[in-house]
């Protein structure tokens, strides 16, 4: 399985503050990757590093086998729809398609025209007059018709209303199904990625908390509820993500590769939301947490 994004000890520092530190990732190709985390966690920084808009302060990042934005060949392989889907407000929809056609060797005009038609966008309309949803769709059209190996989307639906959100994700998924394209998209809402992503990266406080195949992650995390127990009584292969206690009862969220046989626990699976929240909560309570391995 080839790797579409590889980061080694990657870090980015703005003046005094680290926006991203010690980031190690191996994202396999052909996946739809959801990058989740609260606002300000460093999601945009990571995606800007991946698109080459930012240069790393520490470590290395490789995308589709090369340094981001290193040359034309590399630029051809990666599409990037930045936060707030910027477009030239003075140019028309058609101008944007012309721009894409002239500047991208692998441009698929059929796909672009077809998308514009299906979205009901008027080619003569100025991009500045489009609604937020239409603008996002136009930016997505540019990204898709470029036919990159990897399409990166930074909070593509954050500014959209629920209906536009659904339409956007739907049309993204249709295009992904038609083209063999890896996708990385970020969001601060779990619901945005729940239906679409098969790979998860949780980023909190400028650090990657967990990354891996979504189903495997869900299968390896459990909620344990039972009589009050201290942390050190849990088996060593159970990694504690978060814990809460009352006088009589303990609740642990753990990650483990082996099944749980202890009869004193009531064991249940986690939803994606539970899982993400557990890591966010865990990051908030434990300041220094060892980097987690990608589960194979």
């Amino acid at each position: 399985m080839s790797t579409v994004l590889r980061a080694r000890a990657l870090g980015k520092k703005y003046k005094q503050r680290w926006a991203l530190q010690n980031c190690n990732l191996n994202v396999p190709s052909g996946r739809v990757v959801g990058l989740v985390g609260p606002n300000g966690a460093g999601k945009s920084t990571l995606l800007n590093l991946a698109s080459g808009m930012l240069a790393p302060t520490a470590g290395t990042i490789e995308v589709c086998g090369g340094r981001p934005a290193a040359d034309v060949n590399q630029l051809t392989k990666v599409g990037f729809v930045a936060q707030d889907a910027p477009v030239y407000s003075g140019l028309s929809v058609r101008d944007h398609l012309d721009l894409g056609r002239h500047l991208n060797p692998a441009w698929n005009d059929e796909v672009a025209q077809d998308r514009i038609r299906r979205l009901g966008l008027d080619p003569k309309q100025r991009a500045g007059k489009l609604s937020g949803g239409q603008r996002a769709q136009l930016a997505l059209t540019l990204g898709i018709a470029k036919q990159p190996e990897l399409l990166i989307l930074d909070e593509p639906v954050a500014a959209l209303d629920p209906l536009a959100r659904r339409e956007f994700m739907q049309s993204l998924m249709e295009s992904v199904a038609e083209q063999e394209m890896s996708v990385i998209l970020s969001s601060h809402l779990v619901s945005d990625i729940e239906r679409t992503c098969d790979y998860l990266i949780v980023l909190v406080d400028s650090r990657v908390q967990v990354a891996g195949d979504l189903d495997e992650l869900l299968a390896a995390h459990y909620r344990l509820v039972g009589p009050r127990r201290e942390t050190d009584t849990l088996p060593s292969d159970q990694q504690i993500i978060s814990e809460s206690h009352t006088d009589k009862q303990s609740t642990y969220l753990v990650r483990t590769a082996s099944p749980i046989h202890d009869p004193s626990w009531t064991v249940s699976q986690l939803s994606l939301e539970d899982l993400v929240l557990a890591y966010m909560h865990g990051a908030a309570t434990t300041h220094e947490r060892p980097q987690l391995e990608v589960l194979r």
Partner: peptide
């Protein structure tokens, strides 16, 4: 300011 740099720098054209 209009962030269009993020659009144009991600077409297949070098800076």
């Amino acid at each position: 300011e209009s962030r269009t740099l993020w659009l144009i720098w991600n077409q297949s054209i070098t800076r």
